[in-house]
Nucleic acid binder design. Structure first.
Lengths: 108, 108
DNA sequence: TTGACATGCAACCAGATAGTTGCATATCAT
DNA sequence: ATGATATGCAACTATCTGGTTGCATGTCAA
């Protein structure tokens, strides 16, 4: 889980996922065009995404095809994000009340 | 948006959000008990969460109360995560087909 | 007012990270 | 076979990050 969060923390890597979202199964060479970076740099980012299981690869001859694996993102959504979803209004209410109380104490 | 992803990348910071989820409005001192780290360490993490607008603070005398702001997490869910939600089955199908094709080419 | 308590600020350090360059390997096409 | 193409591996560097320590500031309570 931590791997996934860490992998998602980099804008370049999120961009790579977006690229694969737009067209799945791209090669390293194709994905390189997207980032302003050497091929090796992109390769490293893809390796991190692969380690986090966000990207799965397969070989076609000398090419390496990259496929988006949406499962980890979905897991995060289910186990983590949605948790903060339902109580959202309550949390906002808490927040609002706290801020108002502060203003009162400061005599505004 | 990048701030939020980066803020979420650290397990300690996610733990702090969990703590505030369990009980909103905790002080720095209270939150310190949770992490195995000096107060200043925790303070830095909270500053990062605050900069990402995931946590909002207010003062009560010499104490600083921390409140969870679920909005940025929700934004990520809406603008980013859910994008990968609907096409999930299609992506998995692509992946499955690609892997099978590879196995065929390798003669398994 | 004085001591205890809660937090803030700044300097510093070790390890992680992002990116590079250079070279090696494997595959395709002629 | 040979040259071009696609990728892999390793070493190196600069910067970012997570954490520390030491001291300063502000607030409460007697």
């Amino acid at each position: 889980m931590d791997d996934v969060f860490k992998a998602l923390a980099d804008p370049g890597r999120r961009d790579l996922l977006d690229a694969l979202f737009e067209r799945n199964g791209q090669t390293l060479g194709e994905l390189c065009a997207r980032l302003d970076m050497t091929r090796q740099g992109v390769s490293k980012h893809l390796a991190i995404l692969e380690a986090a299981n966000l990207v799965v690869t397969t070989r076609r001859g000398r090419e390496k095809l990259h496929y988006l694996n949406p499962v980890p993102i979905n897991d995060i959504a289910e186990r983590w994000i949605n948790k903060y979803d339902e109580p959202r209004l309550q949390a906002l209410a808490d927040l609002k009340r706290a801020l108002e109380t502060t203003r009162e104490r400061e005599g505004r």
